[in-house]
Design a binder for these strands. Structure first.
Length: 704
DNA sequence: CTTGCCCACATGTAGACAGCATGTC
DNA sequence: CTACATGTGGGCAAG
């Protein structure tokens, strides 16, 4: 037991008082262990404990210690949403004179300006990008916190995290490193890579009972409990939970299942409500949320969600708009929503605990491999959402089994099972393409020897045999040389430096450059350029479904406009994605796009966001190599940003004018800035309202 | 003739980071 | 390439 008061040995009194004011009297056991192991004496630590065991506070203590003695800390998280959540939380240190900055792709300030903060929160990619772009303050860090460091195991994003940590440790040799991890089998291995002490514990602030539900029986280790049964375990468990005044989080393996489950439960839950008299207020809550959801747009998804929240139930997946997700999350926190059926979005993301968690399917579709049982680590991630500290006496989580033998299997494998080891994915070719280039471009290595030394300091080299890595490195370097991004002696070319800073896959750059070079300008249309960026590995193309027969026709019709693509399956996906973007910049309504392409509104935004980034990068490449398409590409970039037709481009330069107002002005005859200049303020006000009109007039005057 | 049920068969499958430069309705 | 849950439409019997 360590009293919070004891922290005054290492920290100023005002820090301790801040926590005391928040009601904290003593440290949790794993926290105390971390402090004893030298958290506040600059020791590197890897803390591997369950969710909600107080990892964040440990990071806070270390960062405050540094901040109050003039040091700077970087806190790395895997998600943008998490970055804003942490930034908001750390902002309470303003009273101590500690400033907090946020840096992620969607919320950006000037990089150098960020250095004025003592704590900076960033996504791993952004942190990497800050290094690539040469932000100076990043060479002067006292503390590095890496949240969810077990993501080193992720194929997509693990290598970025790994390289970022490696680079930061190299340029800040004295920096304290604090890794925060879920429980994994080989935490010691990760710790040793970081030269860190390991703090490992299974302690939780709220008891968690894990079990398996089967035929109306809740099976816990050494104990079974039966609940009122109507032969539908899902409905029974939900009714039971709500009957106790609790909330439940249900994890599904597909969006469709999440939506179907939510719809089904909404019917059940609202029927219960209708029976109870004091629930008048609840009903009003429901209709308030109903309106709020509908206000975000009346897409199919939106309407379905609105219908569900009316009954106090919601679904949650990446097809939702971020506004819609926010409504669901907030509604659940406030208790207006009792049940969320979610895809894994919620498992990895925000802190949204519930009394009970139901994992309805522990299998997940993995393309060629069919349905695969999820790793224990992911199970823990989901189960760990059960139990709200201070609110629930305990949390309960359940897997769902259809038979006795399956129930026993699940007990063995998940409830009693140990999480897996994590493995570096750095030897994957796409990862190396990106990161070898940036290593050379940022001067972390200047020749083959230095590169070898650098690679030797990665987690991969620490953990695994290097022969596979060496072979891939060879291949990748050849590609980079052939693409003129590095010279024969591995020195970066200006093109290579540009690609590294743009943060795109070198292969994406290669595809863009090759196609722009070989293509005759006369045959280049908007569709050509849209297709071009969908061909790059940085674009996640849409799937082809049975109802997508039109795509083949679309390809035939516009044959000459497409870039060369040998693989017809890819071609279909690329063409479909390009078609979506074409609709988007033709000002087609979101609802219509969602319908035509069978995607959620959130997917549309994501495709557009990625496309905008890639179009910008294509523009920079065209500009740098003088490929002749620069102007057109930048215009397209702008159109993708706003989702607007070509005739609006000049109007969009005006602040306060987006796609909607620009179209209104255009329809009213104000088709250009000159036309607007000739008009009277009152007439413009007629179209866009007096306030905006005034703003517009002021800008016109300034420009003239 | 309608309704309800079972079966065979078709269908579709999680998530989300980055550049740049500041403000949509 | 490996599975699975869900939705759909036809066939059939009961009402």
């Amino acid at each position: 037991m360590l009293d919070i008061e004891d922290l005054t040995i290492w920290l100023p009194r005002e820090v301790v008082e801040l926590y005391q004011k928040e009601g904290i009297r003593e440290l949790y056991p794993p926290q105390a262990e971390a402090v004893e192991r030298g958290l506040l004496e600059g020791k590197n630590l890897l803390v591997s404990v369950p969710t909600a065991a107080g990892k964040t506070m440990l990071a806070e203590l270390a960062m405050l210690k540094a901040a109050l003695s003039g040091g700077r800390s970087l806190y790395i998280v895997p998600l943008r949403a998490l970055a804003s959540e942490k930034q908001a939380a750390f902002s309470r240190f303003a009273d101590l004179g500690v400033k907090v900055g946020l840096s992620s792709g969607d919320m950006e300030r000037k990089d150098e300006y960020l250095g004025r903060n003592q704590i900076i929160v960033a996504t791993s990619e952004k942190a990497d990008s800050l290094i690539r772009n040469g932000a100076r303050w990043i060479r002067d860090l006292s503390v590095l916190v890496v949240d969810e460091i077990h993501l080193l195991d992720s194929t997509n994003r693990g290598p970025t995290l790994e390289m970022t940590i490696t680079k930061l440790m190299r340029i800040n040799p004295k920096m304290q490193v604090l890794g925060l991890s879920a429980t994994v089998a080989n935490a010691r291995e990760v710790a040793s890579w970081l030269s860190a002490d390991l703090v490992e514990s299974r302690w939780r602030p709220v008891e968690l009972k894990e079990g398996v539900i089967c035929d109306g029986i809740l099976n816990f280790p050494g104990e079974t409990v039966s609940i009122p049964s109507s032969r539908d375990d899902l409905v029974d468990l939900v009714k039971d939970t709500i009957g106790q005044g609790g909330q439940i989080l249900i994890f599904e393996s597909s969006r469709r299942n999440a939506e179907a489950t939510a719809a089904k439960l909404a019917r059940v839950v609202s029927k219960r409500k209708a029976g109870a008299s004091q629930d008048q207020v609840q009903g009003e809550d429901g209709s308030r949320l109903f309106e709020k959801v509908l206000a975000t747009g009346e897409s199919e998804t939106g309407k379905k969600l609105a219908e569900c929240v009316r009954g106090g139930v919601a679904f949650h997946h990446a097809g939702l708009l971020s506004e819609q997700r926010a409504i669901v999350e907030k509604g659940f926190r406030s208790g207006e929503i009792k049940v969320i059926a979610s895809t894994p979005t919620l498992a990895a993301g925000l802190n949204l605990p519930a009394r009970r968690v139901l994992i309805r399917s522990y299998k997940r579709y993995e393309g060629a491999r069919g349905m695969v049982a999820i790793p224990v680590m992911e199970y823990r991630q989901m189960a760990g959402r059960a139990g709200r500290p201070g609110l629930d006496p305990r949390g309960e989580s359940f897997l769902m089994a259809k038979s006795e033998p399956e129930m026993k299997d699940l007990m063995d494998h998940y409830v009693h099972g140990e999480p897996e080891e994590i493995f570096s994915k750095l030897s994957m070719e796409p990862a190396l393409r990106t990161h070898l280039l940036s290593t050379m471009a940022t001067g972390f290595a200047n020749d083959a020897d230095e590169l070898k030394k650098f690679v030797d300091s990665t987690f991969y080299a620490h953990q695994q045999d290097a022969w596979h890595l060496d072979a891939t490195i060879e291949k990748v370097l050849e590609f980079l040389i052939d693409s003129r991004m590095i010279e024969d002696d591995l020195k970066p070319t200006p093109l290579g430096e540009l690609v590294s800073r743009l943060y795109i896959d070198p292969l994406s750059a290669r595809i863009v450059v090759d196609n722009l070079r070989s293509r005759e300008t006369a045959k280049t249309t908007d569709l050509t350029l849209l297709h071009l960026i969908t061909m790059t590995p940085d674009m996640d193309t849409l799937y082809i479904q049975a109802s997508d027969g039109w795509v083949e026709e679309f390809i035939d019709q516009h044959y000459g406009e497409f870039c060369n693509e040998d693989n017809y399956d890819w071609m279909m996906r690329e063409a479909k994605t390009a078609a979506l973007l074409q609709d988007w910049i033709a000002e087609s309504e979101e609802e219509r796009i969602a319908d035509r392409f069978r995607v959620g509104p959130g997917d549309i935004r994501r495709v557009a966001e990625t496309a905008e980034w890639l179009m910008h990068s294509a523009g920079r490449l065209s500009e740098h190599l003088e490929l002749g398409a620069t102007y057109r590409i930048y215009q397209l970039e702008k159109r993708i940003h706003y989702g607007a037709g070509p005739d609006l481009l000049s109007l969009l330069d005006l602040k306060g004018v987006g796609r909607v107002r620009a179209r209104k002005l255009h329809r009213a005859g104000y088709t250009s800035l000159d036309k607007l200049r000739e008009a009277k303020a009152a007439d413009i006000a007629e179209v866009v309202g007096p306030k905006i009109a005034e703003k517009v007039m002021a800008q016109l005057k300034e420009r003239a």
